[in-house]
Write a protein that binds this DNA or RNA. Structure first.
Ligand SMILES: [Mn+2]
Ligand SMILES: [Mn+2]
Ligand SMILES: [Zn+2]
Ligand SMILES: [Zn+2]
Lengths: 131, 131
DNA sequence: TTAATAATAGTAATTGTTACTATTATTAAT
DNA sequence: ATTAATAATAGTAACAATTACTATTATTAA
């Protein structure tokens, strides 16, 4: 834990706004004015690989980061881009109404993406030493 | 409908692979060798704005395009990046097993993102002329 | 202290995408 | 046909997010 890494982690944990790397850079700069953007990216990558933070690969191009690693989903505003947490397993149609009450968000759309291993790749795994 | 636009649409509709703009460019080039990547991007944008194709903003950075606009979700291979269709409303935990049978995909993770309008933006809408 | 290791700052390179511009194609009016 | 107006193109430049590179600085282990 270098000073830079610690400050990045500290500042990220203060936020519930799921900032981009650039936003974190601007915040950390107040405490470490000479830190470089590369260091921010490198440490965010490091921390998320260690499972200390979460890297959110939401739709849209920019990566966002989350200081809280408990299992939860997210909701994004299609107007301003803001990303908020979603109470754990609040899901699907029947929840849209509850969500309005609980978070104030009017749900317009839901995106569900499954991640898995395709048949081809599963075959490859079988072929290898010990998938 | 220019020739370029038509060929882009034709080729996209031949595929079920949800190609990136670059992949479409490479394919269309075989029929129109002098087409430019800019034209491909411009027409994909145009076609998806018209609702003729779908632009998929899945997690991960690159945009993908879908010639089929009926409502369906997608599944991506975490190994090779391949994106496949998902039978319409197959959803969540109990489905993982069925998905394995139906698509051959071993589900590792699910990502659900809600899109909506945040409380702030909803307030703004109220303030404006006619939301 | 010196050598080995690791992380950094600063910058350059890469990548996906969009914007710009001069040229070419299409249409409508003469 | 000839012209003018419009739209789309090819090619290139600009852009923004991210990653890679490199010389320097900090840390640790002999
Ligand atoms: Mn969160
Ligand atoms: Mn599809
Ligand atoms: Zn908003
Ligand atoms: Zn695969």
């Amino acid at each position: 834990m270098t000073q830079q890494r610690q400050v990045i982690l500290d500042e990220l944990r203060k936020l519930d706004s799921h900032p981009t790397a650039d936003e974190i850079y601007e915040i950390v700069r107040r405490r470490i004015p000479r830190i470089s953007l590369g260091t921010v990216y490198r440490n965010l990558e490091f921390l998320s690989r260690c499972g200390i933070i979460r890297k959110l690969e939401l739709s849209g191009s920019q990566m966002r980061f989350d200081g809280f690693i408990d299992r939860h989903n997210h909701i994004r505003c299609i107007r301003c881009g803001r990303v908020d947490d979603l109470p754990a397993e609040q899901l699907l149609t029947e929840c849209d109404r509850d969500l309005l009450k609980e978070t104030g968000y009017k749900v317009i759309e839901r995106r569900v993406e499954f991640l898995g291993v395709c048949p081809n790749c599963r075959e490859d795994e079988g072929t290898e030493s010990a998938g």
